[in-house]
């Protein structure tokens, strides 16, 4: 099936119709989505600023991660769930939205950056847990921060192009 045909079909599913035709479906999801993304960005920024050596230099990197990441994942889960639901309501329009495509691309980049950091750089964390972070960790922090700022911005511009 062509992607657009699939997305047209998706819009006609009962769940999608509740989102697009229901009086409060979209607005309620949108409210929760934005609140969730603020927590995702904020908690990731706490970790990134430590990796960059800008803040929390007196705290261990592992300790910051242990505190911040559970909140990040829960908020990210809520953001994805509400985001997917909002997408089903107007799937074709989102698919053709330039800002939305950029947002997905940047989410992908942020994901790859996270995997590289987690499986390669973070393995040697014992060496710099309480000290200045190596270049690879600082780079991961900078890329992550830039990606997430752009994700928020493109998210805002997605709505701007939609309505």
């Amino acid at each position: 099936m062509e992607p657009v045909a699939f997305l047209h079909w998706l819009e006609t599913t009962p769940l999608a119709l509740t989102v697009s035709q229901g009086i409060f479906g979209f607005s309620a999801l949108d409210m929760i989505h934005i609140a969730a993304i603020t927590v995702v960005f904020g908690m990731i920024a706490v970790v990134d600023l430590r990796l960059l050596g800008i803040a929390s230099k007196d705290c261990a990197v592992t300790d910051i991660c242990r505190q911040a990441l559970p909140w990040t994942w829960v908020a990210f889960g809520i953001a994805v769930l509400t985001g997917v639901l909002m997408f089903t309501g107007q799937a074709v329009k989102y698919y053709n939205n330039y800002a939305f495509r950029m947002k997905l691309l940047l989410l992908l980049l942020a994901g790859i950056n996270m995997l590289v950091f987690h499986y390669i750089t973070y393995r040697g964390v014992a060496k710099w847990d309480r000290a200045a972070t190596p270049l690879s960790a600082r780079l991961a922090g900078a890329i992550s921060l830039a990606c997430w700022i752009a994700v928020v911005a493109y998210g805002r511009w997605t709505a701007y192009y939609m309505f």
Partner: peptide, 24 residues
């Protein structure tokens, strides 16, 4: 408008994460 909204949303993120870290 979207630019200021973006800055506003990012600042909410810093505010909430700081409150969470204090709370923890």
């Amino acid at each position: 408008f979207p630019l200021l909204q973006t800055v506003h949303i990012l600042a909410i993120g810093m505010m909430l994460s700081s409150v969470i870290m204090v709370s923890l």
